[in-house]
């Protein structure tokens, strides 16, 4: 078996109420050093992790949302967000922060892809390892 596997990090919980979103992000950052084929999935309440303009001073907690924007620097380029999860919560792509990565020519590309539920199921099915938080 080759040493490169397809890793999917599945995020289904809103941020701040629990530590899962933050500690999931920490795994993604550490995992980047292992040069695997990494994707991130945001569905159900997990879509709230990518909402822009999160302001956490009022709850006395460090805002880690800016770290998502740096994912491109860690070579994490595939971020899938489920369309139905957004719609069920009255959200759209415009509510999400912008996350980009550079290609070899230093040209910027959007890392976030909005996918429907059927496509999300296919993405999940195509993985070797699924880490859920």
């Amino acid at each position: 078996m080759s040493d490169t596997k397809r890793f999917l990090y599945v995020n289904r919980k809103a941020p701040h109420g629990t530590i899962y979103a933050l500690e999931s992000l920490e795994v993604v950052l550490i995992g980047a050093a292992f040069e695997q084929d990494v994707s991130l999935a945001f569905l159900d309440d997990g879509v709230f992790q990518l909402i822009k303009k999160q302001a956490t001073t009022g709850i006395g907690v460090k805002n880690f949302a800016p770290v998502y924007r740096a994912l491109g620097d860690y070579d994490v380029k595939k971020i899938f967000v489920e369309r139905e999860s957004l719609e069920e919560r009255g959200l759209s792509e415009d509510d999400l922060m912008e996350i980009v990565h550079e290609d070899d020519e230093e040209e910027e590309h959007n890392s976030i892809e909005i996918v429907d539920r059927a496509r999300m199921a296919e993405i999940m099915a195509a993985q070797d390892v699924i880490l859920s938080f």
């Binding site: 390892v129 699924i130 859920s132």
Partner: peptide, 8 residues
């Protein structure tokens, strides 16, 4: 099964 996915 090829993999396990936990719906936590």
């Amino acid at each position: 099964h090829d993999k396990t996915q936990a719906w936590l």
